[in-house]
Simulated assay, not measured.
Amino acid sequence: MGASHKIALVTGGSRGLGRNSAIALSKKGIDVIVTYLSRSEEAEEVVKEIEANGCKAAALQLDAGNISSFDSFAAQLDDLLKEKWGRDQIDFLINNAGFGIHSPIATTTEEQFDSLMNVHFKGVFFLTQKLLPRIADQGGIVNLSTGLTRFTTDGYGAYAAMKGAIEVLTKYMAKELGNRGIRVNLVAPGAIATDFAGGFVRDNQDIRGHLGSLTALGRVGEVDDIGGVVAALCTPELGWVNAQRIEASGGMNL
């Protein structure tokens, strides 16, 4: 576990795409800090798997929609970096934490809207702002979006709108942080078989079959289809890729 390893922070890294991204990063030789909301045991399992890949790892609790908690989180991150790595900065921030609500525009409540906004847009904006001094020059940020900003599926209007805002924000981040050599890109998964939206895709064979029929590669995505894309954006090989939306959907709704 060399001291020269880069360090990535993956929000929502205890499960799903975040977990897969964290492990994929470790396979690239990048140390990883994962955040979790309530699943501490699952986060510790991710830490163990990362360590088994020869990298350092740690887990911190974070409510990605509670902006008032970000000062405390940043202080915990500072202490962790100093104690475990002897550093005061990370190299990569992966803004992955999120959840889905399937609700038509006509029946979406203000509470549902605000919960989506706080995690998927406001939280990303202000967590990134808080961590900017803690991201090393020549580092990178990867934001997570969705294929639903390109094509539409009933019931995801509010969620997709938040992700559309993140896609615009990604370009502005790339522009404003370019003078520090920090690249900012975005990965937009298509339909993925995870526990997202209560396992809407994962657990419904009819939905899987239908969505697979709309995809050029003939199936829905799995978590292993996404983590490697996120990790690749944190490597020198993609060091000239900046301000890009990279859709990983298998060619959905072409």
Rank of each mutant, 00 (worst) to 15 (best):
S14K: 00
R15K: 15
G16R: 03
S21N: 08
S21F: 09
A22H: 00
A22Y: 01
A24V: 04
L25V: 04
S26L: 09
S26D: 07
K27V: 12
V32I: 13
V34C: 13
T35V: 08
Y36K: 05
L37K: 13
L37E: 07
S38Y: 10
E41Y: 06
E42M: 14
E44I: 04
V47P: 11
I50A: 09
E51S: 14
A52V: 01
N53F: 12
N53M: 14
G54K: 09
K56W: 11
A58V: 03
L60V: 09
L60G: 07
Q61T: 08
L62V: 05
D63G: 07
G65V: 08
N66D: 15
F70H: 02
F73G: 03
F73W: 12
A75Y: 12
L77H: 04
L77Y: 08
L80Y: 06
L81N: 10
K84G: 00
Q89A: 09
F92I: 09
I94P: 00
F99R: 01
S103P: 09
P104Y: 14
I105E: 14
A106L: 15
T107Q: 15
E111I: 13
E111C: 05
F113T: 09
F113H: 08
S115I: 11
S115M: 14
H120P: 08
H120S: 10
V124E: 01
Q129E: 14
L132N: 02
R134F: 11
D137G: 05
Q138Y: 12
Q138A: 08
G140H: 00
S145D: 02
S145R: 03
T146A: 07
T146I: 05
G147C: 02
G147S: 10
L148S: 03
R150H: 12
R150S: 10
G155Y: 07
Y159T: 02
M162V: 05
M162A: 08
A165H: 02
I166R: 01
E167G: 10
L169F: 15
L169E: 06
L169H: 11
M173S: 00
A174G: 07
K175F: 08
E176F: 07
E176D: 15
E176W: 03
L177M: 13
N179T: 12
R180T: 06
G181C: 11
R183V: 06
R183L: 10
R183A: 12
N185D: 15
V187Q: 06
A188G: 03
G190S: 07
I192P: 00
A193G: 00
F196E: 07
A197Y: 14
A197L: 14
F200Y: 14
R202K: 15
D203H: 12
D203P: 03
I207H: 11
I207P: 06
G209V: 05
G212S: 11
S213Y: 12
L217I: 14
D224P: 00
D224K: 13
V229F: 01
A232H: 04
L233N: 05
C234Y: 01
T235M: 14
P236S: 11
E237C: 04
L238Y: 15
G239Q: 07
V241Q: 02
E247L: 04
A248V: 15
G250C: 12
G251Q: 13
G251A: 12
M252I: 09
